[in-house]
């Protein structure tokens, strides 16, 4: 067992435990903070897998952006609307069906895909190749995604103005 195994299990544990709490805990603020640790753990696993750029973007967008926005939403609405912000369970049967199907798909993919096992491959920086790919091979998709985001932004702004 090398140090990298230990670090991997550490991050995996952080991810799993906090993800478990995200869904089970009743207090939604706690949930959001646990989500932060989940994202952190996932970023760590990305780093170990050699996907450093993805890891950093994960941190910037999810930790620095999404979670913060969620917290903002919770904190701002909590005191204004006197709705108790708790998570609860409803619609068990449809949810169970959905989760079961999704779990089935995931397991099927897990079993059927051919995993590339590379032992101690040198971790090369991925940023440059990723960047080149984004603007050459996947250029159009990249731009389209940008446009979708822009539309979402404009939509949100116009909704908020009403």
């Amino acid at each position: 067992m090398s140090i990298y195994d230990i670090i991997f299990y550490l991050f995996a544990a952080i991810t799993l435990i906090s993800a478990f709490f995200v869904v089970t805990i009743r207090n939604i603020v706690y949930s959001a903070f646990f989500l932060l640790f989940t994202f952190f753990g996932v970023a760590g696993i990305y780093v170990i897998l050699g996907a450093d750029f993805v890891a950093m973007v994960q941190l910037i967008i999810y930790v620095g952006g999404i979670v913060i926005l969620m917290l903002f939403g919770v904190m701002l609405t909590n005191k204004i609307t006197s709705v108790a912000i708790k998570t609860g369970t409803s619609q068990i049967v449809p949810a169970a069906i959905g989760v079961g199907m999704f779990a089935g798909i995931l397991t099927a993919t897990l079993v059927n895909s051919h995993w590339r096992k590379v032992d101690t491959a040198p971790l090369l920086p991925t940023t440059q190749s990723l960047g080149l790919m984004l603007i050459s091979e996947y250029g159009i998709i990249f731009e389209l995604l940008g446009i979708i985001l822009l539309i979402a932004l404009i939509g949100a702004a116009s909704l908020a103005r009403k």
């Binding site: 932060l36 750029f53 941190l59 930790v63 620095g64 952006g65 979670v67 913060i68 940023t127």
Partner: peptide, 15 residues
């Protein structure tokens, strides 16, 4: 990714 990492790290401060 030093520069990007520095930006990413500040997310924890905000949280």
């Amino acid at each position: 990714l030093g520069l990007i990492f520095i930006i990413a790290a500040s997310g924890f401060v905000v949280a």
